[in-house]
Amino acid sequence: MTSHPTRPRSTGLLLAAGAGRRYGQPKGTVEDAGGPWVVRAARALLDGGCGDVLVVTGAQAEDVEALLANAQLDNVTTTRCGTWEQGMGESLRSGLTALATRGRTIPQQALVHLVDLPDVGADVVARVLDASGAGTGGLVRAAYGGRPGHPVLLGADHWEGVLGRARGDAGARGYLRRVPPLVVECGDLASGVDVDGPPS
């Protein structure tokens, strides 16, 4: 795997709070031959260049947090979303709010990623980060075969706008319709397909 430079002021924001009802268990607790999805996603964010990772937990939070603790990854912390049952938008709000209230360590960028994209690795993360440039104004989204997906980079200048529209399952969708992001094609690196059901 290619080594990518670290950006200390870019934080990976990993959403892993959902119950995974269609899957049959919270996706933050899923493990396969490659290990726990939540650990794999956190490692991809770090290896791709994020200076640290904040994981938002909710359903079976203690189990998800235990998987991360057992992996002993540096620079990975968690925050619990008490309203996770209302949808992904609540997890995003919880994570961005936690980042925005860090005081002197507020990052310039949050790279939002989902736990149920197990084939999205460090190279995708690095490509999105590279496209954003430095600073707080970036707004970049990965695409796969022209289909918009995750991760999505939100420079801090955009957080207030996203927080104002993140409700239920909407996440940043409404904001990204109003303020179109730079779209970066990553279909040569991953499928970007979220896994909705268990393997048959």
Rank of each mutant, 00 (worst) to 15 (best):
M1P: 06
T2Q: 09
S3G: 11
S10D: 07
G12P: 11
L15D: 02
L15H: 07
G20K: 09
R21V: 12
R21N: 02
R22D: 13
G24E: 09
T29M: 05
A33E: 14
G35L: 09
P36E: 01
V39L: 05
R43T: 09
L45M: 06
G49R: 03
C50W: 00
V56M: 06
A66R: 15
Q72K: 12
T78P: 06
T79N: 01
T83A: 15
Q86S: 13
Q86L: 13
Q86W: 12
G87I: 05
M88K: 07
M88Q: 12
G89F: 10
L92K: 01
L99I: 10
R102E: 12
R102K: 11
R104W: 02
R104T: 13
T105S: 07
I106P: 00
Q109W: 12
Q109M: 07
L114Y: 14
V115I: 14
D116A: 14
D116M: 05
P118Y: 02
D123N: 04
A126N: 02
V128K: 01
L129E: 03
D130I: 04
S132Q: 00
S132T: 02
S132I: 07
G133T: 10
G133I: 09
A134K: 01
G135K: 11
T136S: 05
A142L: 03
A142K: 03
A142R: 04
A143S: 15
G145C: 04
R147F: 01
L154A: 01
G155E: 00
A156P: 00
A156N: 02
D157L: 09
G164K: 09
R165V: 14
A166N: 10
R167W: 05
A172K: 00
Y175W: 12
L176M: 12
R177H: 14
R178D: 15
V179E: 13
P181E: 04
V183R: 01
G187F: 05
D188S: 10
L189F: 09
S191G: 15
S191T: 15
S191M: 03
G192R: 05
V193W: 03
V195Y: 02
D196F: 13
P198K: 09
S200N: 08
